[in-house]
Amino acid sequence: MKLTTNEATLLSAVTTPNSEAARIARGLDMFVVAILFFAIIAAFHIHIMLTVGDWDFWVDWKDRMYWVTATPMLLIFIPAALSYPFMMRFGLPIAGTLCAFCLVLGEWISRIVGFHLWTYFPYSMIWPAIVLPGLMLMDLVLLLSRNLFITSIFGGSAVAFAFAPANWPILAPYHEPVVHMGQLVNVADMIGYSFTRTATPEYLRFIERGTLRTFGGESTLISTGFSGFVCMILFFVWWKIGEWLTNLGTIPNVMKKHVGLGDDDDEK
């Protein structure tokens, strides 16, 4: 595609090494990185905490059914939406990785400063899930394919397929069986029981409680498969939402005469 004169001038200016233009452009880069860093932590974190937060907060919510099914689905919204501007406007296939890093950083800060130092919940109870491998795979598929459909299918589903395997190495120790008061539970149950949550009792946990139909305990696989399917669709949908939000236009400014602009200034 051909650039306009202005664009060509600017491209030539900012690509001149050590020039003022390159310095100004780099300064802008730094500002934008900082804005994105804080804004993504905030937006992605509030989205995750209020949609699948409880599973992420508590070790005794991290089950084979809801946690594994719902978390990847909700993880994909914002990274998919940001993938559009990142990739299609700046050629940067890093939206997923950046979102994952920012989310987990925000979560750790909150778990340490809020959950542990303020309200005394132990670390074994409140660690966040690992989300980076799946979202990074999504980025990598986008990088290699540069194709929305391929990324929806393989990248979207990767978020779900990588979720349980990424977390099992840290969750497994908590699923060792324990007998307490003559009852069989696992270590995670035991932690949840021991360290009192006044407002989230046992029955409030959305966890797998059995259905007679989970085919010999393959719950994790079944959940992952379903989640992968939904993630494919969600990647596509949220990419489109990202596209829409990136290309938003303008509305007339009725107050512009107060700042010395007339109607003819519209076309400038």
């Binding site: 005794d60 919510w61 991290k62 089950d63 084979r64 497994a172 120790p173 699923h175 060792e176 069986p177 009852q183 069989l184 539970v185 696992n186 995670a188 149950d189 946990r205 966890i207 797998e208 409680r209 059995g210 305990g217 719950s219």
Partner: peptide, 10 residues
């Protein structure tokens, strides 16, 4: 961890 059990929800 060859032996694990899921969260108990009974």
């Amino acid at each position: 961890y060859p032996r694990t059990v899921p969260l108990q929800g009974s």
